[in-house]
């Protein structure tokens, strides 16, 4: 498991550095691209945890769709080359404090749940079996235990979609 550990820390380092650059970069497009690096590295962490379905979803949804839309929007509106000086919001300190508090809450919740114990990985991490694979497990749980939340989220997304169309249409 040495290789996994090495890669975990490598990816964690990439995530931390890129996340830091997202907020400190002077160029909107650069910031968006550092965000891509963060999300890609997170996807890689999922792969490392043998959750390739989540990894694929991460790539498809976040990198393939959301960030592309980000970039698309940025380039359509304010695609300036070179660095911007007015990117730092006046209330950045407040945002930083919020982020720290958020991090603290999440960290506390995790620690409270697992109490610094390492959860052992399954013995065989090769992902070959078609039956009983973890994507099947995911889909099973989505369509049984979490059916109602799943459908509610779909309706929410639909509402957002309709709202976007209403806002975008001029006539």
């Amino acid at each position: 498991m040495v290789a996994q550990n090495v890669f975990f820390y490598l990816l964690a380092g990439i995530i931390l550095f890129s996340a830091f650059r997202v907020v400190t970069s002077n160029n909107v497009v650069h910031a968006a691209l550092y965000l891509v690096a963060v999300l890609a590295a997170v996807a890689a962490e999922y792969v490392l945890l043998a959750a390739e379905f989540v990894a694929a979803t991460q790539v498809l949804v976040y990198i393939g769709a959301i960030i592309v839309l980000f970039l698309f929007g940025i380039m359509l509106t304010r695609a300036k080359l070179g660095s911007d000086q007015d990117l730092t919001h006046p209330h950045w300190a407040l945002s930083a404090a919020t982020a720290v508090v958020m991090f603290g809450v999440m960290g506390y919740a995790l620690v409270d749940q697992f109490h610094w114990t390492a959860t052992p990985l399954p013995a065989d991490t090769r992902l070959v079996s078609v039956d009983g694979s973890n994507s099947a497990t995911v889909s099973d749980s989505v369509f049984t235990a979490y059916l109602v939340p799943f459908e509610v989220v779909s309706v929410l997304l639909l509402a957002a979609l309709v709202g976007a169309i209403v806002l975008a249409r001029k006539d």
């Binding site: 497009v29 691209l33 891509v36 390739e52 379905f53 990894a55 694929a56 979803t57 790539v59 498809l60 990198i63 393939g64 769709a65 960030i67 592309v68 970039l71 698309f72 380039m75 992902l127 078609v130 694979s133 973890n134 994507s135 099947a136």
Partner: peptide, 21 residues
């Protein structure tokens, strides 16, 4: 991978970022 085709479709969308850049 169990989700081979899913991952393939996801990965194919990464090239958009390269093109946009």
């Amino acid at each position: 991978l169990d989700t081979g085709i899913f991952l393939a479709l996801g990965l194919s969308s990464v090239s958009v970022i390269g093109i946009l850049i």
